[in-house]
Design a protein around this nucleic acid. Sequence first.
DNA 1: ATGAAAGCGCTAACAT
DNA 2: ATGTTAGCGCTTTCAT
Lengths: 328, 328
Amino acid sequence: MATIRDVAKEAGVSVATVSRVMNGSGYAHEDTKKVVMAAVEKLNYKPNEVARSLYKRKSKLVGLILPDITNPFFPEMARGVEDYLQQFGYRLIFGNSDEKRDKEIEYIDTFLQNNVVGMIASTSEEANENFDNLDIPVVLLDRTAEKLPAVYSDQKTGGKLAARVLLDRGSTNIVLIRGPVEIKPVYERYMAALEELKQAKVNVQVMDSSLTLQGGQTCVKQLFEQYPETDGIIACNDIVAAAALQEILKRGIRIPEDIQLIGYDDISFTALLHPPLSTIRQPAYEMGAQAAEMLIKRINQEKLEVTHKKLPVSFVERQTTRRKAEKT
Amino acid sequence: MATIRDVAKEAGVSVATVSRVMNGSGYAHEDTKKVVMAAVEKLNYKPNEVARSLYKRKSKLVGLILPDITNPFFPEMARGVEDYLQQFGYRLIFGNSDEKRDKEIEYIDTFLQNNVVGMIASTSEEANENFDNLDIPVVLLDRTAEKLPAVYSDQKTGGKLAARVLLDRGSTNIVLIRGPVEIKPVYERYMAALEELKQAKVNVQVMDSSLTLQGGQTCVKQLFEQYPETDGIIACNDIVAAAALQEILKRGIRIPEDIQLIGYDDISFTALLHPPLSTIRQPAYEMGAQAAEMLIKRINQEKLEVTHKKLPVSFVERQTTRRKAEKT
DNA sequence: ATGAAAGCGCTAACAT
DNA sequence: ATGTTAGCGCTTTCAT
């Protein structure tokens, strides 16, 4: 690997000059610029980011912490972040936290040790404090905290909407599947749905599930044993909804005639289920991209007009909910 | 952030001593060790990896290039890689290539500029040469090249197996959906399946599709128009298989009675399809983990007994293929 | 407009 | 057993 000195020698100038022309900082005669660039070209010189980072105390690296890239909701976000940052020459150091505080801390530490310019994270509630005294910008993604800028989606409206959909379409024995209460967005959508449901005069049951496939399957099996009369299910996410759908089909229950089902997230494969799953869509990619945009603004010392960006969710109507009666 | 000098001052020793006890290199009296560690503790000192990296010309960073984290096959691999590397204190710099040569090169360059110790990549055939003259270890994942160590799965057996399954279970009008021919593993499984099919006396048709949802849907719609008598489909991956499944159901064709369908990869949601999809499983997580293991060995200058590790695939029998007749 | 030199935080000779 | 110091590759005053 060629260093700046090699280039300097090749071009017959000092390293300072090379540095100046590389960075477009300070003066440099047109002619010497050319000579230097020629040398750069010839030696295929690429500045060592590590040395640069050491001096400037800032790298071109951004830390990204996500709970679990294996959950299809997060890769969308990750790509949103990456695609946006990539244009500005930033690279991602990445870690899965599994919602575990220890792992989050470990990643935060090592990111810091690598001079990241900023971080984007979906952290568990309790880990927020880990970000408190950093002197680099942090933006939260899909999670929130008072003190930190954040990009997230409108869980309240989402939860409410899910409930409204089933209600408006005539379900009266509804099971609401609640995800892990420690995960705030999941809890919020649950609470919003519950409130909406309670205001209607329908039967409501609550069941717990993890956000995973197995969790969903276990939960859903019990569901039909305990509440065979169920005619509406609101799942905490699409994965659990898919598990529910499978169980429904297995039991020969007609959907959406006998039972309606709605998921949450709109991860890609929901459209591939049969029947295709109705769900509440979170704009995951967009969330990632906007978090990245916000981070870059903060890195560039620009003021943020909005520090908490709440993106809208939407109902994606497919075939596990009934067509709403058109107004006569 | 405390530096090594702060610690040295606090402990009343020189920076060299601090460095020694931090790294367990060279001598250090038990007592001074204690003093130093106390200072480290007190100041919450974490060594600056950038400075360390600059001096050693080696960071604790590993570059990972994957085609698209948004395709559920790859996050599994990524986690396999991450979980394995993480134990040894390595961190991941990550980039999606979208199978584009330009992006691959760009990532390779910046990874190098950041002194990565090694790289793991699923690169397109043509980009392999970009890795040729690096003086850090590289291991290919899901892809192969003669000159580079690689971890991949047995595509030939996989393709053959998929074909065998349909054949043994009685399909006689088979459509083989071929993915992009530029992607070697996808091409290999296709070729292997085709050969197997040709040796049997059945009707075989080939159709092309991308690896995506839309691609699959488009392809599959045509499929039934062109070949309505089809009674067996071998899809290039699970996503396309899911699209096929949906179309089959929509048309009211009975599966597996009237038509059999087999996918490839065994990504997580295949089990959630209805009916659950039979598929050829690639051990994605394991592949990632083994690539990481191999990389670490190379980083540690250990000799590799095997440079090309071919992991076995397996048939996951679910409900889109018929039960094979038991031997009488 | 250009160069010399200090210094970012660390490690590893080398000296003591 | 511990300290002094050069140097990793770069950027940035400060001279000239």
